[in-house]
Amino acid sequence: MKICAILRVVPDLVEDIEINEEELIPFAYIANERDEHAVEEALILKEKAGGTVDVLGVVDEDTAGDIDDALAMAYAKGADNLIKAILSRKTYRRYEVAKALAGFLKDKNYDVIIPGIQAIDAFAGTLGGMLARCMRIPYIGGAIEIEAQDGALSVKKELGGGLLGEYRVSLPAVVGVVSAERPLKFVPFARLKKAMKEAKVEEVDVEVPEVEGVKVTRYYEPPKPEITLLEGEPEEIADKLVEVLREVSVL
């Protein structure tokens, strides 16, 4: 089975993000968590069904260097080929990204394309479903388990509240992963360092078309909480929390 996992970077929320009306200025980027699960699930599928896993890193000029560690990590875990698609311009609009990637992917003959189901900046669409429509192949998102079954896939999809649906999906298809079926594999630092040296990344420039219809009018901070936060020495905070636990008659 020829598998392609999609990997993106997003602003690291542990660091501050500078917010002004026109733009967001992140201080650091990290791999999109759901995409890390997509890569993991792609590798699990390869273990089960055989084949190859290509990891397609999607970046723009500003973030081109920020994905290298995550690509090397995928390589250390067993990815076969690494590709870096550098988008010709930054866009939050997933439809534009989907169109761009569909152009690149259309003659690559992948059986399954696996993106993470969502990224934290997905306020104007989500990639998987849009990519599938641009490529005219089936899409299913919310996957937590993918099995190869008689030339098709059997996918377990979350439906909320712990409920799952089981679906049979014909190939080729796009499958959006929410979480891999097992925890992300731990890679010792030495192995990661080795992978960073050895991994070869093919770089491709991808033209992003412009599609009218949605425009950000402003970015802004959410309202501050209405409560007064307890701050200071942990001992004092613990005392105050005990008072609150009494107020709500837990103690």
């Binding site: 479903g129 849009m130 429509r133 998102g141 919310g142 909320g160 599609v211």
Partner: peptide, 23 residues
């Protein structure tokens, strides 16, 4: 914005090339 809804919405918007806002 549910696990079932987003699958349908994203595909519908892309197929019809309609503007979409999520979250």
């Amino acid at each position: 914005n549910t696990l079932a809804g987003i699958d349908v919405a994203a595909q519908f918007a892309a197929d019809m090339a309609l503007p979409i806002a999520t979250m």
